[in-house]
């Protein structure tokens, strides 16, 4: 399984990031959450298995998310595409 968990004090929202291990804006997004002490899970899609990649592709298509990274999903509901600290803060009530 390619999903990793990062612990944090804030656990009131379920946060999941589709990221790339090599991408600068994905790192910024992870760092932002870490800095705000938000617990989150992420998948580095470039390191995922083919089956996982296919699932990610389906998810993004289903939700009509533009194909770029990172994609942050909050409470399985709010989808934030790209590095957007303001949008993250708002969705997480920071």
């Amino acid at each position: 399984m390619t999903i990793k968990r990062v612990e944090g004090g804030r656990t009131d929202h379920k946060v999941f990031i589709y990221a790339l291990s090599t991408c600068g804006w994905c790192k910024r997004t992870k760092d932002f959450l870490k800095e705000k002490n938000v617990a989150y899970e992420y998948m580095d899609v470039d390191q995922a298995t083919r089956e996982e990649k296919r699932e990610v592709g389906e998810f993004l298509k289903e939700r009509n998310v533009p194909l770029g990274f990172p994609v942050t999903v909050i409470d399985d509901e709010t989808v934030i595409s790209g590095y957007k600290p303001e949008a993250l803060a708002e969705a997480l009530g920071l």
Binding site: S21, T22, G24, R28, V45, L67, G68, F69
Partner: peptide
């Protein structure tokens, strides 16, 4: 710091694929 990340991403991709694929896109 940001620059370092991108360069490292390019390095990883070059090792991985044999060519420096864009680190912020999925290859």
């Amino acid at each position: 710091e940001f620059l370092e990340n991108i360069l490292e991403g390019l390095r990883v991709n070059e090792e991985r694929f044999g060519y420096p694929a864009c680190p912020c896109r999925i290859a």
